[in-house]
Amino acid sequence: MMLKNRHLLGLEGYPRADIAKIIDTAFRFREVLDRPVKKVPALQGQTIVNLFFENSTRTRISFELAQKRLSADTVNFSASSSSLKKGESFKDTAKNIEAMKIDAVVMRHPTPGAPWHLTRFVDAVIINAGDGTHEHPTQAILDMMSLQERFKRLKGLKIGIVGDILHSRVALSNIYGLITMGAEVTLCGPANLIPLHVGELGVQVNHNIDEVIEWADALNILRIQRERMGIGLIPSIREYRRLFGITSERLDRHQKEIVIMHPGPMNRGVEIDSQIADGDQAIILDQVLNGVASRMAILYLLMGGQETKPE
């Protein structure tokens, strides 16, 4: 095995050397993506199921593309969590997959811990594509790859993560990954959307976005989910923009080089202005391309495609 762990479930406690190895491999696959023929036979004959219990467009497409670029056979299974609640149990779904002789499962599920749960029933390699409000390890790896591409290092970088931290799997995986790689992390957002005990993960909390902008090398702007409005978590979009929005006026005021990231999908005009999202400081589309390369690297390293090196 090329990585210490058989699965990629989360980045909590994930070895630093393996994160580095995934990112290095991802850069090599990035070169493949720039070739006229963007396909390698690394995972030929292997079968991967994309098991999505929750709607997802970009993560699913990114994984699917990565699988096709590696020549794996892929099957997509989408089930809304509500149908699962009504009928077939999680175990039965898992057992069915097991019976079909699948080599790997990429799973998105609304419940924290679901991929761990899946390992009890399925013998395949399992990759977490997001488990509720817990982890989204492949997103964090592509985020770190994008930072490394820009800064040529992760150690010592100052990263601000802005938004609803409490409900964000992107934030949690980024925290684990970045801290492991030696970066510093400051969280910024409404106090009621930052977990009370998050300081124990080794991060700072600062509710003043202007101070965070002054401090940070890069900002990872999280999507503010509109469904969180109206249940008292955010008083209004106007208020949120005033206190935490990455507006052009705000960045203009600071006159500072700062890299802007966003995991998507964006709410333009809410957490980020269009001018910023489309501007020179943003590496949001690099993140998307790096997402495919990162997922190729993860699949390749976990599924042991030894026959063909990516070079």
Binding site: G113, H134, L172, H197, L201
Partner: peptide
């Protein structure tokens, strides 16, 4: 329980 562990697990506390 709400605490460092629920934060680590992403489970509502």
């Amino acid at each position: 329980n709400e605490g460092a562990v629920s934060t680590r697990l992403g489970l509502p506390g």
